[in-house]
Design a protein around this nucleic acid. Structure first.
Lengths: 196, 196
DNA sequence: AGCATTCTCTACCAAGTGGTAGAAAGTAGA
DNA sequence: TCTACTTTCTACCACTTGGTAGAGAATGCT
């Protein structure tokens, strides 16, 4: 694999797990078995490295979600597919979601850029929700707020692994599945009209 | 006000907003108009300062929640009171919730200690939920998972202010109230049996 | 082979980090 | 006023931070 790719992957992990300030270029280089200056050759500044990490993370997330949209029909099924996709991501690469959360803490200007990258996704989601509401397949409410609620619920359930472990709740794959089921039940009862 | 209290308050803000690694004792001292060494007199290490901040934040949160419990009856009303309490806290002192989130990212050993501090609260909540489920006032489900879902939903809705602003969603008090309402609707439909 | 390009390295640097030592200043009781 | 104690200060330290300058290697093209 190309060095620049290896750097990007390691950086995404580190930024997502230890935060931006908690990650030093030296430690990053050490983990990769190279020198810090090699990192700075591929990414001229630390911020540029963060930028690239965020872009790639957004790319992966977008991929997962649009894949879920492609392979599902309208209504509840689609929401379920998206939640499953994000959970799979949370298990396989938790650092990606951690990174997005970190970005939202860092605030502008990085956050602004990230949101811009996610804008088509958010726009698509709200439009689709609007449409679904019109057809009565989803409970009427402000789509923007809905997207946020769902976002934070998923993000929370998917990324609070640390917290769960500290609470003594095991993290076997089976338990993660149960948590996903619980979240889906949660979402379903909140979003789907009683008739269905 | 005593210097040690001023330090504690400023530290809680800083840790909550900029993270532990993102906060230097020098900048903290500068904001307070004192010298770093005065901080280190009251709190021998940076970690001790974090510890004290976390303890105080947990104290405040516990206070808000037990106040909500005291002033409400069983059933949905109590959940609503608790959500209102946390939202009020999120508006008045968002850095407190930010700090708790930061702690959950830092992981052990600080997280372990924090969770231990919150244990009575969590235990009380799960016990109460168990009881409510028995009486049929709340939908049957794993109380632990439920607490987590509710926690992350509230935490998300209450602390993603940065994200919302970057998304161009205004943050007037009126809008915060709307978000709280939306979250309450969300929780209600997920938690309350259809009969009510 | 020679040459240019791409990449990784050693050697530094100025600034900032948490923390130590101990002097100076304030404060209160006798 | 003397004394004991608490608090804040100046001065400093070893170490780490992100970043620069430029020398050496690889690598591929002709």
């Amino acid at each position: 694999m190309k060095t620049s790719e290896r750097i990007l992957i390691a950086a995404t992990s580190a930024f997502g797990e230890n935060g931006y300030d908690g990650t030093s270029l030296d430690s990053l280089a050490h983990d990769l078995g190279i020198r810090k200056q090699s990192i700075l050759y591929h990414y001229p500044t630390k911020e540029a490295l963060l930028d690239a990490s965020v872009s790639s993370a957004i790319g992966v997330l977008s991929g997962v979600l649009s894949e879920a949209v492609k392979n599902s029909h309208d209504g509840w099924e689609r929401i379920e597919a998206m939640v499953r996709g994000v959970f799979r991501l949370a298990i396989q690469r938790p650092e990606l979601l951690g990174l997005l959360r970190e970005v939202s803490r860092l605030g502008p200007p990085m956050l602004t850029k990230a949101v811009k990258g996610l804008e088509p996704l958010i726009l698509g989601a709200t439009k689709w929700l609007d449409n679904e509401m019109e057809k009565g397949r989803i409970v009427e409410s402000d789509p923007h707020l809905l997207v946020l609620s769902v976002y934070s619920a998923i993000m929370g359930a998917a990324t609070e692994g640390n917290l769960l472990e500290a609470m003594g709740i095991k993290q076997n794959p089976r338990d993660v599945v149960m948590r996903r089921k619980e979240l889906l039940r949660f979402l379903k009862s909140a979003l789907i009209p009683i008739s269905s």
